[in-house]
Computed example of a mutant assay.
Amino acid sequence: MTFDVNGKVALVTGANRGIGKAIAESLIQHGATKVYAAVRNLDSAQSLVETYGDRVVPIPFDLAQPDTIAQAAQTASDVDLVVNNAGVLKNAGPLAEDAIAALQYEMEMNVFGLMRMAQAFAPVLKANGGGALVQLNSVASIKNFADFATYSASKAAAYSITQALREKLGEQGTLVVSVHPGPIATDMAQDAGLGEIAEPPSLVGDGIVTALKDGKFHLFPDTMAKQVGGAYESFASNVVEANLMEG
């Protein structure tokens, strides 16, 4: 399966800044006719509206409030592409006093949030011909970083769910892409102390457009990600993307 964003309607969660904003911009620049900017504060997407006019439609969305996910699926009933970018990160190692609380929070947002998004939008995408779902995971979903151990664990779980979604949504003609960025220049990366090695978020936005067009499941968009992806490629193609049940 492949997917061309030109002429399509998309929804991007957390589209008001950082990677989410870059994704929304890339989709519009590559021909998307409309992008729903799913954000907690509608005013935070105003700069996108000022730049792109009515091609950007802000709608209320908060991973912490499941009812807003269901409402977003009702409002954006014409979407062909859903990009689940929103997520959270806690700087917690496995021995930190708040490690369990951090992991519980990150699992709720990064994993259960993905599952709620998929459950809400799968019927919408099916009704609109299949379309595509893009999940923002991380290199931390493959390699655990001790200072962000709980975040890495939550992203590993999200990546596992994304693999299942690839199979299940594929049955209805929906292409699934799992995105694994390294340090990207966002507020999250800055807060995590990764600002000096972070790369532009446009790498993610443009990479998603290309991965969709090429029908690729994995996307490793930046320098660190490409290093991880290169080493992971054989396992990804021969195990993750293979149907082992066929022998």
Rank of each mutant, 00 (worst) to 15 (best):
M1Y: 12
K8I: 03
L11I: 08
T13A: 13
G14D: 00
A15V: 03
R17M: 09
G18H: 06
G18Q: 05
I28T: 01
I28H: 05
V35G: 05
A38M: 11
A38R: 00
V39G: 04
V39P: 04
N41M: 05
L42G: 11
D43Q: 14
T51R: 15
P60M: 07
P60V: 12
D62Y: 03
P66S: 09
I69R: 01
Q71V: 03
A73K: 01
Q74L: 14
D78I: 04
L81A: 08
V82Q: 04
V82K: 05
N85I: 05
A86N: 07
P94E: 07
A99W: 09
A99M: 02
I100K: 14
A102L: 06
Q104P: 00
Y105W: 11
E106D: 10
E106C: 07
E106Q: 15
E106A: 03
E108L: 06
N110Y: 02
V111H: 09
M115C: 11
Q119D: 15
A122Q: 10
L125R: 05
N128C: 06
G129C: 03
G129P: 03
G129Q: 09
G130Y: 02
G130S: 03
G131N: 09
A132K: 08
V134A: 00
L136P: 00
V139W: 06
V139C: 12
V139F: 10
S141E: 00
I142E: 00
K143E: 10
A146E: 13
F148A: 12
A149P: 00
A153M: 15
A153E: 03
A153S: 14
A156N: 06
A157P: 07
A158E: 07
Y159M: 14
T162Q: 01
Q163R: 11
R166H: 11
E167F: 07
G170W: 07
G170L: 12
V179F: 08
I184P: 07
I184M: 11
I184T: 06
Q190C: 02
L194G: 03
L194P: 08
G195S: 15
I197Q: 13
A198L: 07
A198F: 06
A198Q: 12
E199V: 12
E199K: 08
V209Q: 02
T210D: 15
L212N: 13
F217R: 04
H218V: 02
L219C: 08
F220A: 08
P221Q: 06
D222Q: 00
A225R: 00
Q227A: 15
G229V: 08
G230A: 14
Y232P: 00
S234C: 01
F235I: 11
S237N: 14
S237P: 04
E241R: 13
E241N: 15
N243H: 12
M245G: 01
E246V: 13
